[in-house]
Simulated assay, not measured.
Amino acid sequence: MKLKLSVVDQSPVHGSHPAIEAPRLSVELAKACDQLGFYRYWVAEHHDSMHFANPCPEILVASIASVTENIRVGSGGVMLSHYSPLKVAEAFKMMATLYPNRIDLGVGRAPGGTGLTSHALAFPNQPNHGDLYSHQAVDLKGFIEGNIPTDNPFHKIKVLPDNTPQPELWMLGSSGGSAGLAGHLGYNIALARFIDPDNCHPSIFKEFDEEWQRAGHEKPANKMLAIACICAETEEEAKLRAGTAVYRKLAAQLGLREAFLTPSEVVDRYREFPSSYQAEFDHIMAGYTVGTSEQCWEEIEGLSKAFSCDEVGTVTVTHSYEDRLDSYQLLAKGL
């Protein structure tokens, strides 16, 4: 089966543009990726972030779907612990009605922000911190498919406008905590290797497959591996571009909060680092897929085989929007 290449967009606040333009740039990139032949375009959810500018994926999904033609569009993902499963189902079933057979609903357990934002999103109630996630996932699937069990107090609710159009359901995870749940409930699974490559192993997909089969779901399961990927004309240039995202991740580990640095600023910081910080920077870089189009595709195909999946999602964060667009244009040569 031909490998499908997709996009997971965190709507980064590029240093090359004002922050207010980040959502619009996601729409522009999605239009380009639609023309380039990418299979899916997912947008992420973040709150109170200086780096990522999309707190409401359902709005960006609808906007992107309205200006694209072929590419599937969805959330990667909605942070379900903050929301009513009914309201999420209503929003995505409406989009599935307006854009048939193109809408994906991916959900995740993570908060997508700080503890303070979790409290603000839950106010005047208290945040559940993911404790009710499995129950919310059950109800969400029931609302989407129109089959809430009769012993559920919500079983008489009809999700408008109709039972027929449905988004494709996905569950996100980074280290395996949700794999069994996704397989048991019948959600497709997207594994975020870009978050924690050290603890992202093929055994997670194996656990998912086993639970899927044990539950007796009739349809085949879909699996996506999401990776950090930066492509350029040369390996040297790709590593230079990737430095922005690598430094942001290292800075977060060190408790530093600052806007994206330019590639040259990252080089300067690296030279000033103690050897231990340089080693950690290099370790993070090694978990990314970085290089020319040919080098990236070789690694992508290797990861696809290692994880036994036929779809890879790519997360590309660069200082400039032009570098991010160029990275996807170069990757598209392998499609």
Rank of each mutant, 00 (worst) to 15 (best):
L169I: 06
L169Y: 02
L169D: 02
L169P: 04
W170R: 05
W170L: 04
W170N: 03
M171N: 01
M171L: 15
M171D: 00
M171H: 04
L172V: 01
G173H: 08
G173V: 07
G177W: 07
G177M: 10
G177C: 10
G177H: 11
G177K: 15
G177D: 06
G177L: 12
S178D: 09
S178M: 15
A179T: 06
A179D: 06
G180L: 05
G180F: 06
L181N: 14
L181T: 14
L181F: 14
A182F: 14
A182G: 14
A182W: 08
A182R: 13
H184W: 04
L185Y: 05
L185E: 06
G186W: 06
G186R: 03
Y187P: 05
Y187S: 00
N188T: 07
N188I: 03
I189F: 15
I189E: 08
A190V: 11
A190N: 09
A190W: 12
L191K: 05
L191E: 01
L191M: 06
L191V: 07
L191H: 00
F194N: 04
I195A: 05
I195P: 07
D196H: 11
D196I: 14
P197V: 12
P197E: 10
P197A: 10
D198T: 15
N199S: 10
N199Y: 12
N199I: 09
N199F: 15
N199T: 10
N199R: 13
C200D: 05
C200W: 03
H201V: 08
H201Y: 08
P202W: 09
P202K: 11
P202F: 14
S203L: 11
I204D: 05
I204N: 01
F205T: 01
K206D: 10
K206L: 12
E207Y: 11
E207R: 14
E207P: 09
E207D: 13
E207S: 13
F208G: 00
F208L: 06
F208I: 02
D209A: 04
D209N: 08
D209P: 04
E210M: 12
E210Y: 10
E210H: 13
E210T: 13
E211T: 11
E211S: 12
E211K: 12
E211A: 09
W212S: 03
W212Y: 06
W212L: 03
W212A: 05
Q213T: 00
Q213F: 00
R214Q: 12
R214Y: 09
R214P: 03
R214V: 08
A215L: 12
G216T: 01
E218V: 05
E218D: 07
E218Q: 06
K219S: 06
K219L: 01
K219M: 01
P220Q: 13
P220T: 11
A221F: 05
A221M: 02
A221P: 06
A221W: 01
N222W: 08
N222M: 14
K223G: 03
K223N: 02
M224K: 02
M224W: 02
M224I: 12
L225Q: 07
L225I: 12
L225D: 04
L225A: 13
L225C: 11
L225G: 08
A226D: 01
I227W: 03
A228Y: 15
C229W: 00
C229G: 03
I230N: 13
I230H: 11
I230K: 09
C231T: 13
C231E: 09
C231G: 08
A232V: 14
E233I: 04
T234R: 09
E235V: 12
E235K: 15
E235H: 15
E236I: 13
E236G: 12
E236L: 14
